[in-house]
Structures are given as C-alpha cells and as structure tokens.
C-alpha cells in the first residue's frame, strides 16, 4: 500500500514538473490545465478518501515549496480536495467523457474559491486576483478539455502496468 502511494505521489510529482516546465511554456495564454487536480480526481475515484487526501496533503506541501506559496495553503486545498474526490469511489460508475469534464470544471472553481478564502482567513497578501478574470475561464476550458484524456491515460497505465506487479497492487 505504501508503495502504491509512493508511485502515485511520484506520478503527481512528475505532473507538477511537466506542468511547470513544459505546459506553462507551450501554452502562452497565461493559463494552463490543472492536470494535478484531474489526476487527484481520478485517484479519488480509484482509491477512495484516505489515500487521496494523504497524497493531496503531500503533493500540496510539495506544491507550496515549488511555487513559493505560504507553506500549508496548497496542502489544505488539496487535502480537502482529495477527501472530496475520494467520496466518489464506489458511489457511481463514471464515463470517460462527461464525468471527468464536469468534475474537472467544478474542481477548478473549488480550487480558486478555497485559495481565496484561505488568503482571506489568514490575511495573506494576494498576488493576483484570478477569479473573475480571463485566466479562470481559460483554465476552466483547458482543464475540462484535458480531463477525459488524463482519465483515459491514467486508467490505461494502471490497467497495463500497475496490475502486473502484484506487490504494487497489494494493499
């Protein structure tokens, strides 16, 4: 189980790197799809609350370090997000298009709302007010667009590689 968490965390780490290093450069519109959120969504559906919120916490912590945000703010956001995403496990059967798109759309809104609430509660200086700006619209669009692809890709990887390792599958 610990190994599985480690692999998921590693994947998330790679996603952060890819997103910050490549996608941010490729897309010059000032906005990019929140792939790590999509991955956490997928993870929540696959693994449930407990692992997803822990991975969310760790990756949020890592994200804060990476982006120079106040330590803990992304941990808070992604922990709660992991918990909520994990609620979906076993509750309904998802399709590869509609479910990811809608949830990814809502996830981006959740992310910004919670960030703003936390900034307000902790009286932190906001660097940029992204809500009600064109960036949010673009991120909503890109994230919704990319979500089905990430879902299909993640499921495919899991089915093809992860299952072949018994140890990795072990809980």
């Amino acid at each position: 189980m610990k190994l599985r968490y480690a692999v998921y965390f590693l994947i998330l780490f790679i996603i952060f790197l890819i997103q910050s290093a490549w996608i941010a450069r490729l897309l010059q519109w000032g906005s990019q799809p929140a792939i790590y959120l999509i991955f956490l969504l997928w993870l929540g559906y696959q693994e449930g609350r407990q692992p997803t919120q822990i991975i969310g916490f760790l990756s949020g912590f890592f994200l804060d370090l990476l982006m120079g945000l106040p330590i803990g703010i992304s941990s808070f956001v992604l922990t709660l997000f992991g918990f909520l995403a994990g609620t979906a496990k076993g509750r309904f059967i998802y399709d590869n298009l509609f479910y990811p798109m809608v949830l990814a759309f809502l996830s981006v809104i959740y992310k910004y709302l919670l960030y703003h609430v936390l900034f307000f509660i902790f009286q932190l200086e906001q660097r940029n007010n992204i809500i009600f700006s064109g960036h949010l619209v673009l991120e909503l669009f890109f994230t919704s667009l990319v979500a089905p692809i990430i879902f299909i890709l993640a499921t495919s990887i899991k089915n093809r590689f992860v299952k072949s390792y018994g140890g990795f599958q072990g809980g």
Partner: peptide, 16 residues
Amino acid sequence: LLLISSTSIYLSGQSR
C-alpha cells in the same frame, strides 16, 4: 492534515 496545513500557513506566512 487540515490542522497541520493551517498551522503551517499561520507560521510560515507570518500571517495573522
């Protein structure tokens, strides 16, 4: 985890 995160924010950001 949320408590840890909140405490971290409070401490790291020198926020009130």
